[in-house]
Design a protein around this nucleic acid. Sequence first.
DNA 1: TTGAAAGCGTTACCAC
DNA 2: GTGGTAACGCTTTCAA
Lengths: 335, 335
Amino acid sequence: MVTIREVAAHAGVGAGTVSRVLNDSGHVSPATRARVLDAIEALHYRPNPLARGLSRGRGQTIGVIVPFFTQASAIERLRGVVAALDGSPYDLVLFDVESPTHRAEHMATLTRQRADGLLVMTLPVRADDLHRLADTGMAIVLVDSSHDGFPAVVTDDVAGGRMAAEHLLALGHRDIGFIGDAPDNPFGFTSSAQRELGFRQAHDDAERVVREDLVHHGAHQRDVGYALAGRMLAGDEPPTAIVCCSDMQAVGAMEAARDTGLSVPDDVSVVGFDDIELAAHVGLTTVRQPLYRSGELGARLLLEALGAHPPEPGVHELDLELVTRTSTAPPGVRR
Amino acid sequence: MVTIREVAAHAGVGAGTVSRVLNDSGHVSPATRARVLDAIEALHYRPNPLARGLSRGRGQTIGVIVPFFTQASAIERLRGVVAALDGSPYDLVLFDVESPTHRAEHMATLTRQRADGLLVMTLPVRADDLHRLADTGMAIVLVDSSHDGFPAVVTDDVAGGRMAAEHLLALGHRDIGFIGDAPDNPFGFTSSAQRELGFRQAHDDAERVVREDLVHHGAHQRDVGYALAGRMLAGDEPPTAIVCCSDMQAVGAMEAARDTGLSVPDDVSVVGFDDIELAAHVGLTTVRQPLYRSGELGARLLLEALGAHPPEPGVHELDLELVTRTSTAPPGVRR
DNA sequence: TTGAAAGCGTTACCAC
DNA sequence: GTGGTAACGCTTTCAA
């Protein structure tokens, strides 16, 4: 590999001068600058990012920690991140987290030198981990979670849960099922609990009682939605509508309905959460989360924090929006 | 930040000894080893990967270069990569390529120190770039493209094109449209051309003539499929079936059919390519590509090449498979 | 404007 | 087994 010293020798200058040219640090005469540039070209010189990083104390990388890279919603957020980072001088390193152990490992080995900035997606992270990292000078932005003192991009999940329930209540539904994350899930995700809260508030406001026997919990996967919805629909007093905390669960619920011989939305309405691409294709009414934009904004905030500008510790709230499609309708007259 | 020297001082040993403990290089007495470990724990020491990388000449990172991170098929491949890399000591850095310029930039700045290994997905890369990189000792694996002397994971696109066409010909279709990549697309993708070749071979074998007026080219996007299929279907002698080179194009084609007042598959059959998740949901008959597995295998091969084992330059071919769903049927009797 | 040299934190080699 | 000490390739003072 060709080093800066060889370039310097070739150009008849010192290594420092080459460095100055490389980094546009100024104070280099046009003539020498040209000679150096020629030498770089002639020798096909490429700076060694490791050496540069060691010397400067930063490696020009941004870490993105994503839970469940396998899930469509995670991908959608990441798309926004990739788009925002395009053209920036930072490399994107991906940390996938599929289990709490995973998360702990990453947090343990993460250091300032491993990443100049960190984008934490969705995952609740321990406050001491966050502060330890921040204290070493790492820039941190939270997306879809929040912590005092850290810039964050969030949505109002309570409002989201409300939207879903209000839509169904307004249509005339009274027996509404709910499928969300377990409140004591191993990662400590809270958004689902928030949505459930909103779901309950909407009932209260409408002076309706939540059918507690129709409130179930499980992971954000299709088979989970299928199983839980299937059980509800097979019960004695089945719901006329079901709210799910993810589109994948909702798609599973729709399949369960069909497999039970019920039609959507005639016999049972289904509402999802996220608005992933699939939702439009299956006509799912859902609470749209600005997934792409949250990733994009998070990355932009991180770049800002990494820049000379003062880091903005503000919490940026993005709006949720109910998208009405064909999976919801007034309760059927048949029953 | 706490350095190896401070740990050494704390433990009352030399820096070299700490390093040996860190890397399990042996030749350290259990007693000193314990003292060092204690010091590490007490000081919360974490090795600086930049320094380590500079010293060792490798940064423990794998670069993945992915065209169109925005496309479902790219994501699916990446999922396999992430899964295969999980648990390995390598960090995954993502290079998204959305344009030939992008590609050139990445190839220009890529060096051995930027990534120990490189996984090139789908993208045709210039031979000299490949060799330059390989010459510096970078391990390289190609997924969905190939080059002499490089390990690669491929599929038989000609066979894939054949499958699609044979399926439709066997159903009795005679006027079959084809939508693929432009042969002179800016990236130099060739898989679509291969599929077209297979499509033609199937016609030849069945002693059928390809309806050249129904062969069109465009990008792998839904709107492209929509536009091209719409044009075909509005023509004087519309096709009774259409083969698309991606599922997104196929979904667009299905939409075009519906918007033209045609039903799928009664009036027109549609075949896609890839079998992304969406395909199952819309009942699309498609040629399944082992996307996930190709990424996974590619990553595994790369890890192998990075290990002590001899790098396997073999080409690994993964099988394509026709998945029959409800978007194809014999040509309608109505016409 | 420029060159020389001192780090940056590790690893790895060489004596002891 | 262990400590000392060159590298690794770059940036950044500090003089000149």
